[in-house]
């Protein structure tokens, strides 16, 4: 399998140019690369296919039928069960925590990135280094002091307890990527606005922000993915079902439904639907932004 891929993939390196269509027409189809691509597709899709079809099976069908064939008598009962088990509350909690962490994180990271790129001096270099440290250190090492601090702030078992560290943990990567994009804004634009008497504050919002808006959307989506899917903080910082977020609810469903695998998998599907929807709407931006952001 590996040797096939090794031999085949190089062909595609000749792909990327603006003259792609022209190039394509004189390039023979790379069959081994295509085969390897479809092989990987199978690896990716098979588990997802299994989850989706199983979520429509009743328990009897699950035990009796071939696991890889769709349900003979598709049922929505599993979905109903999950929805009746407070799914919408967990969904709302996840939405609150995600929005509450991502919006402030992106704004303050943008401001910091602007200062780091447009300003100078040792102070800002030091700040920049500090943020980069956050990328190199596994911040999860800090869960115990964070647990201590959150209990001391009387925030234990609240959504705010998830939002505050969520903001902090999103800062390093956001600053790094936004700074990379801000560096590409031509200096002349800033200089001409400065000559017009603009302050840094208004240049930041009126020039830099609109110009790098795609990057801002990207970093917002990236952080939203992380916060939305976060499991460790909810596990240690919340307790009650009232403040449960979606990933944690999946774990709780597993405990509740035990051997009712179709119901557990219906919960998995439901928990993924919001992000699948976002992906369908904003895929181009997400993918383009992530590649540009991390590949510099």
């Amino acid at each position: 399998m590996m040797s096939l891929r090794t031999a085949s993939a190089p062909r595609s390196t000749t792909g990327p140019t603006s003259t792609a269509p022209l190039r394509k027409s004189r390039k023979p189809l790379n069959v081994p690369a295509g085969a390897a691509g479809f092989l990987w597709l199978t690896v990716v899709i098979l588990p997802i296919y299994y989850v989706v079809i199983t979520s429509f099976k009743d328990q009897q069908g699950f035990f009796a039928s071939n696991p890889f064939l769709p349900a003979e008598n598709p049922t929505l009962a599993n979905y109903q069960l999950v929805l009746e088990n407070d799914f919408f509350r967990y969904l709302a909690n996840s939405l609150i925590v995600t929005a509450g962490a991502v919006l402030p994180a992106v704004l303050i990271s943008f401001m910091a990135a602007y200062a780091i790129v447009r300003g100078n001096g040792r102070l800002l270099t030091g700040v920049s280094r500090l943020f980069l440290l956050g990328l190199a250190i596994p911040l999860q090492a800090t869960i115990i002091p964070i647990y201590w601090g959150i209990t001391k702030l009387y925030l234990y078992d609240s959504l705010l307890a998830l939002i505050l560290p969520g903001i902090a943990f999103a800062v390093p990567v956001s600053v790094l990527i936004l700074a990379n994009f801000l560096r590409d804004v031509p200096n002349e634009l800033f200089e001409s606005m400065r000559l017009d008497g603009c302050s840094d504050w208004s240049m930041m919002w009126r020039l830099a922000f609109p110009l790098i808006r795609p990057a801002i959307v990207t970093i917002a989506i990236y952080n939203a993915l992380n916060v939305w899917n976060s499991f460790l903080f909810p596990l240690i910082l919340t307790q009650s079902a009232e403040n449960r977020v979606l990933p944690l609810s999946l774990w709780a469903f597993q405990g509740e439904f035990t051997i009712n695998t179709p119901a557990i998998l219906a919960a998995v599907v439901l928990s993924a639907l919001p992000l699948v929807f976002v992906y369908i709407v904003g895929r181009r931006q997400l993918v383009a932004g992530l590649t540009a952001g991390f590949s510099k």
Partner: peptide, 24 residues
């Protein structure tokens, strides 16, 4: 150099929930 204050909000969160806990 005066732009440095723009990093303050990000720094506050990062220091409070990452740097101090690292010391903690």
């Amino acid at each position: 150099a005066s732009l440095a204050w723009l990093t303050v909000p990000a720094l506050v969160f990062f220091v409070a929930f990452a740097i101090i806990p690292l010391g903690g």
